[in-house]
Amino acid sequence: MNEMPLKPNDFGSDQEVRWCPGCGDYAILKAMKTVLADIGRSPDEIVFVAGIGCAARFPYYLSTYGFHTIHGRAAAVATGVKLANPDLDVWVVGGDGDFMSIGGNHTLHALRRNVDLNLLLFNNAIYGLTKGQYSPTSPIGTRSPSTPGGSVEQPVNPVRFALGCGAKFVARAADTLQTHLPVVLKRAHANKGASFVEILQNCLVYNDGAFGAINDRSESQEATVRLEHGQPMIFGKENDKALLFNKRTCRFEAAKIAGLENRDDIAIHDETSLERALALAALEQPDFPVPLGVIYAAEAPEFIEARGFSGTWSEWDREKLKALL
């Protein structure tokens, strides 16, 4: 239908964006428009479904079909969209409250079922729209209006959660890393099944700097390791550090490359290995670089297809109905 290839800005809506100036969501929106233009599908065949929260305003700012639903339920609504019309590209957007708290159950089951949805968790480790309470991903000790003495709860690690749910595609990215984020989003889209992407997103107003150097573009190389399937896990501004896999403990260890006896000891990323993915999910700052990229990707039957549903109409008609009656 579209003779001219669509440009990123063709995916923007006419609505004024209402996020706080400097919010990480702007960067994600920008990356998303680029990705949608690259994918090249008509906005008419794309649906964005969102829950409630800052992140969940996302659909209003795109020219695709969009549904801003209720808190936590976006994955369930999106499952219904796919059941009705499996041909649509469906993206689910929510925050850490949506995905990990009030809607945690739906996240679990969308991943477990492997419904062909792209689930984007904008994790800013805080409740922004309700004015700054600690969230299920906030680290212990987070001072907030509801935890003036600091929170005491262990935070959930979304990547680990997703792997535990049986997700077949799990990735992590960060808002500001504009060359990396689109690549991850495109991989998520290309995966047939539930694609889970945790996007570390900075909340300037209530939780500025929550992810430290990770989404600081100049320091990110030190704080993260960029995963590429089949490639050695090297990180650092000077590419001078690496991850090694200790087969005895089944854990990763970080080391300076210069000190290695054998460069072949550097771990090679195998995104098809669940065991490696679980070990990667355990890596957290400050002791380790945070893994970014596709952490796990495995083939599995997609839910809607496995149920045998296609299109919107199963050739059911009055004659067949009469035979049934």
């Binding site: 649906v47 479904v49 549904f67 639903t69 209720i70 339920r73 369930a76 609504v77 999106a78 499952t79 219904g80 969209v81 796919k82 059941l83 009705a84 019309n85 649509l88 159950n105 739906h106 679990l108 089951h109 919107t312």
Partner: peptide, 21 residues
């Protein structure tokens, strides 16, 4: 669709209606 809970059942049905069924 046997949903994971009552809320998912209702919201998935709404999603289906949004998508034209």
């Amino acid at each position: 669709f046997q949903a994971e809970d009552e809320i998912a059942a209702a919201t998935a049905a709404i999603g289906a209606s949004f998508a034209g069924s």
